[in-house]
Amino acid sequence: MPAGDSQRIAVDPRAQGDHDESSDYLSGSEYSTESLSSSIFEYRYENGRRYHAYKDGNYILPNDEKEQNRLDIIHHIYLLMLKDELHLAPLENPQRILDLGTGTGIWAMDMAERYPSAEVIGTDLSPIQPSWVPPNVHFQIDDAESDWTWEENSFDFIHLRHLSGAIKDWQKLMEQAFKFLKPGGYIEIHEYDMGLFSDDGTLPEDLWLWKFYDLVNKAANKNGRAFQIVSNIESLLNSARFEQPDYRMYKLPLGLWAADPKMKEIGAYLLLNAESAYDAFGMALFTRELGMTVEEAREIVTGAEKDSRNKKIHAYSKQ
């Protein structure tokens, strides 16, 4: 994706804070916070969360209602970031669209309404999509890493968002996408750096946030499904013979510290996302891959959640 607005985010003076006041974001602001086998529904329950059963372990995030709400918040953040656009590719009357890792199916359903003549297929490991959907949407339980069984050269547009941490062989995935796209079709990938950044030195390395992201990345690397894929996407696309990859990067503030009203709104939703994201990303990886006890993992998750609410920390993510 082409370089988006990657300039430094201005800080709202009210988010500077001082030693005589609370460092947390407080309440009071406007931003306060039968085709399927039955085995697919035999979910795994762990640490108070529910996980998918199909290809158990291939995806480390939960699929319960709490996680579904978080995924829908992510969708809203993208609408804000992209100014209500569902994609950046210059589509013209697409007739067949594939959404890999569709999650709750919210993007696929929005695309089906925006392009009513298109057939939209959404695939996921979890059957968490609604039953009542636009007539041109079809959801399938499938693993994006398995060999695809659709007809080759059959999709106008392939979309994937936030599959970092779920894919072992990104090169195979890109090659399959190329094979199943029509000539002249587009693939659009929305991924993120698993980490936070700061331009003003307010993200010191002694924070729980630093420890959380460091350990999450170590656990994901051990699992074989690394999060750090952003820097490799362009080369992967080139190797798969895609033409002229277009890259864009957006800085999204975590919290209400940005001066710009739109950035502040995005930051509020990113903070709302964080309320369940640290638990979702951390608990399974820390206990399964790093051998932590539930108590040890919970301490890190809780610390990261607290740090994310500190208005003196002007951190942002890269999308």
Rank of each mutant, 00 (worst) to 15 (best):
L160K: 02
T149S: 15
Y186T: 01
G201E: 11
E151W: 10
G195D: 08
S198K: 05
G165T: 01
P183S: 13
F180C: 10
Y186G: 00
E191S: 08
L163D: 01
K179I: 12
I187G: 07
S198A: 13
H190L: 15
L196M: 08
A166V: 00
G184S: 03
A166R: 04
F155L: 15
E151A: 14
W170Y: 06
E188D: 09
Q176D: 12
F197V: 05
D200T: 10
F178I: 07
T202L: 12
S146T: 11
L163W: 01
P204C: 10
Q171T: 02
G165D: 00
L196D: 03
Y186C: 01
K182W: 11
E191T: 03
G201M: 11
E151D: 14
D200K: 10
F157I: 04
L196H: 02
D169K: 04
T202R: 06
S198H: 08
F197L: 03
H159D: 01
S164F: 09
H190E: 12
E191A: 08
L181V: 07
D147E: 15
E152T: 11
S146H: 15
E175L: 07
P183C: 08
K179G: 11
W148S: 08
Q176Y: 09
W150S: 15
E152V: 09
G184Q: 04
L173W: 05
W170L: 04
A177E: 03
K182Q: 13
G195P: 02
H162P: 04
I189S: 09
L173I: 01
W150N: 13
D169N: 00
P204N: 13
S146P: 05
T149D: 14
S164Q: 02
M194L: 09
D147P: 11
K182G: 09
T202S: 13
D156G: 05
D200P: 06
Q176R: 09
L196G: 03
D200L: 13
E188C: 10
E191C: 06
D199T: 03
G165E: 04
L173F: 03
E151N: 12
M194N: 05
I167C: 06
L173P: 05
A166C: 07
M174C: 04
E175M: 08
A177S: 09
T149H: 14
H190Q: 15
G184C: 02
E175F: 10
Q176M: 11
K172P: 03
K179L: 14
D169M: 05
R161N: 01
L203G: 05
M194C: 10
L173Q: 01
D193Y: 03
I158C: 11
R161S: 03
A166L: 03
W170H: 02
F157H: 06
S154G: 15
S164D: 09
D200E: 15
S154Q: 12
D147Y: 13
I158A: 10
K182D: 11
D156T: 04
E151Q: 12
S198W: 08
D156W: 04
H162S: 13
E188Y: 09
D200H: 13
G184N: 07
R161Y: 05
F178L: 12
K182M: 12
Y186I: 01
E175Y: 07
L173S: 03
R161P: 00
L203D: 02
I167A: 07
G195L: 06
D200M: 10
